[in-house]
Design a protein around this nucleic acid. Structure first.
Length: 608
RNA sequence: GCGCCCAUAGCACAAUUGGAUAGUGCAUCGCCCUUCUAAGGCGAGGGUUUCAGGUUCGAAUCCUGAUGGGCGCGCCA
């Protein structure tokens, strides 16, 4: 058993920076000032340090905002919370935007904001437009978000889909929160898996040309391999054809045969391919990698997931970055030789065991590439590195972190976010998935059947580290069970209303609407304004903890508030000022729906 | 065996990161279209937050243990 693991506290900008909606921010500042005054009044010790917590209430009976300040300071003040709350309220005095203040429960202080003040947000939304909700949490810090990074050995499947949807939304969120974001896909275009791919393609090419042999059980056997084999033929015609007996000469028997082994069999075939094809082998290899990458790119584009950079593992090797990184580890004295292999002493940093970086046969391990890759990321000057991995790779975190520590970089700069696999259900049955057996649902199939909007939304509805059941039938159904339509419908309805007003010859001027917000007095109208005001805060919080699902939930709430309003009162009314005010309000709702959906890369249709 | 993650209504999931009476959608039951899109709205029922302790003004949330599930423990990638 190794020593107790101690990981650095994850980077959490939320603790450092916080941007609140204006009114709430003001109130929080005032409360901070109140704490100072309490010190001056000797009610609490001067050295008391406290972070003022002001939260949106869940229950309207508790007003609009509430603080637990009195309860937090009860010890330092040596006074019961409710009594201290009274002192706080006295110190606070009267405030222009506040209707009333109450002490409730164990000592909460509840603030009731004047309704008129709540509609200020409509003006903010309409003037800021697409920028409404953005903040400067990140202060322009550069972040590299690496995600998907599936091996280019076949099409993406629905497991990758979740990582893609999550990563893309996290990147969007961080961008909205003021980070300078780069989106990157790490391409594992080196190593044995790629050789298996290239060899599989060549073997299919040979079969196409009439060579007779049994396809290796460990080869890649999807239809996409046939398509790539076709490309190889277009490029090389029959020049790469070799007789089957020559291809199989001295190759270890495959699984299923007497004393066979599928791993040894495929390795033997790879060796034959390299031997028989010579330098042409890399031509096949290249076509295979590019063919699959092109497919993946196209697939992700259709899924509205974009990348700024596709980083090649081979480029690391070619540019000598791996050697440089290993040298750096050696210099820090954390590398030793044993049994002919080179080991990294990751146990010094809390890993369970030391890890091989160069094998006995001289080949560098995947881990060596990964060390070099992270080294390279830091060298490119990013302030924060975010890796989004499948949860099955969690055991990998300690060693990567260890490598970063050994290279004397700041290990806090790395944030690994794990995405659990989605378990698919079809017809109430769990869908068995295995890349090997070829029995998997591809992302492309999902997109075509469900649609990109629904799929993207579905994926980010759940917390990423939460196991998730993905009901294909439900996602496929174009019914109201599908929550994405609920939100999109709200947006389309608003567009339709504004269009109708125009068709009826009833004018709408946003400026006039903003000047007449006092006309809005209905409960539904106040509710909507309050909901709108939450949006910037939701973004800041969701970005700080990398949780796009909060956006999804927020949008459902906003859409719900709108639909309720819609059913309760007409917007296109004769009375001019009221009409303008109402249309301004729903225009603001439309804007926020659009902004929020954009963060998830879900479309905001004008009609449905 | 060791390590990491998870457990909330019949089902799928939230819960402002330690706050007040634990919410939302399906599903079930009852209402609302001669109206700007019913892909909508309103209402009802449904809970010992897996269990047992602990920490404190206060726990679904933090700590310990148990139970149940997922994943990981290669000179594979």
């Amino acid at each position: 058993m190794g020593p107790t693991k101690s990981f650095p506290i994850p980077f959490n900008p939320y603790r450092i920076l916080k941007r609140e909606q204006p009114m709430k921010q003001q109130l929080a500042q005032i409360l901070t000032h109140v704490v100072q005054q309490l010190k001056e009044q000797n009610l609490i010790p001067v050295e008391t340090s406290v972070r003022v917590q002001l939260e949106n209430t869940r229950d309207k009976a508790h007003g609009d905002f509430a603080t637990n300040l009195a309860m937090m300071l009860t010890k330092q003040a040596g006074m019961p919370p409710r009594q201290l709350a009274e002192k706080i309220i006295q110190t606070l005095g009267s405030q222009p935007l506040i209707e009333k203040v109450e002490i409730a429960g164990p000592g909460f202080i509840n603030f009731f904001v004047k309704d008129a003040a709540k509609f200020d947000v409509v003006t903010s939304v309409l003037t800021e437009g697409d920028a409404f909700g953005r903040c400067n949490l990140g202060q322009g810090k550069s972040v590299l978000v690496e995600f998907v990074s599936a091996n280019p050995t076949g099409p993406l499947h629905v497991g990758h889909g979740r990582g893609a949807a999550y990563g893309a939304s996290v990147a969007n969120l961080l961008e909205a929160a003021g980070f300078a974001v780069s989106r990157e896909y790490y391409v594992n275009d080196a190593g044995r898996q790629m050789d298996i791919l290239a060899t599989s393609v060549w073997l299919r090419y040979l079969q196409k040309l009439g060579e007779q042999f049994v396809f290796p059980s460990n080869g890649y056997r999807g239809d996409y391999i046939l398509a790539i084999a076709e490309q190889v033929f277009e490029r090389f015609a029959q020049r790469l054809q070799k007789p089957a007996f020559e291809v199989l000469a001295n190759v270890f028997p495959d699984e299923g045969q007497e004393g066979g082994d599928k791993e040894k069999h495929i390795d033997g075939l790879i060796e034959r391919a390299k031997h028989l094809l010579g330098s042409e082998y890399y031509g096949v290899f290249q076509i295979a990698v590019e063919g699959i990458l092109a497919d993946i790119r196209e697939d992700l584009q259709g899924f509205k997931v974009r990348f700024d950079n596709w980083f090649s593992e081979r480029s690391l090797m070619d540019s000598g970055v791996i050697d440089a990184a290993l040298l750096k580890l050696q210099q820090s004295g954390k590398v030793y030789e044993q049994n002919g292999a080179l080991w990294f002493r990751s146990t010094d940093y809390g890993d369970e065991k030391d890890r091989v970086v160069v094998r006995e046969n001289g080949l560098k391990t995947y881990f060596a590439s990964d060390i070099a890759y992270h080294f390279n990321k830091l060298e490119r000057g990013f302030d924060l590195l975010i890796d989004i991995w499948g949860a099955d790779h969690h055991g990998y975190i300690p060693r990567v972190r260890a490598a970063m520590q050994a290279m004397e970089t700041n290990p806090d700069a790395l944030e690994v976010l794990l995405v659990q696999f989605a378990v698919l259900y079809r017809g109430g049955e769990k869908v068995a998935m295995s890349t090997r057996s070829g029995d998997f649902v591809t992302l492309r199939e999902l997109r075509e059947e469900v649609g990109t909007d629904a799929a993207r939304f579905f994926y980010v509805q759940r917390k990423s580290e939460q196991h998730m059941d993905f009901d294909l039938d439900l996602a496929k159904s174009q019914s109201n069970d599908n929550p994405v339509y609920y939100i999109q419908y709200a947006h389309a309805r608003i567009c339709r209303v504004l269009q109708q007003a125009q068709e009826k010859g009833l004018d709408f001027e946003p400026q006039n609407g903003l000047a007449n917000l006092v006309q809005l007095t209905q409960v539904h109208e106040v509710d909507l304004a309050v909901e709108l005001a939450k949006y910037p805060e939701v973004i800041a919080r969701a970005a700080a903890v990398y949780e796009p699902h909060q956006i999804a939930y927020y949008l459902k709430d906003l859409a719900n508030a709108f639909h309720a309003y819609y059913n309760a009162s007409p917007f296109i009314v004769e009375e001019r000022n009221l009409r303008h005010a109402r249309l301004a309000l729903i225009s603001a709702v439309r804007q926020v729906l659009r902004n929020g959906l954009a963060l998830l890369d879900v479309s905001a249709p004008e009609s449905m």
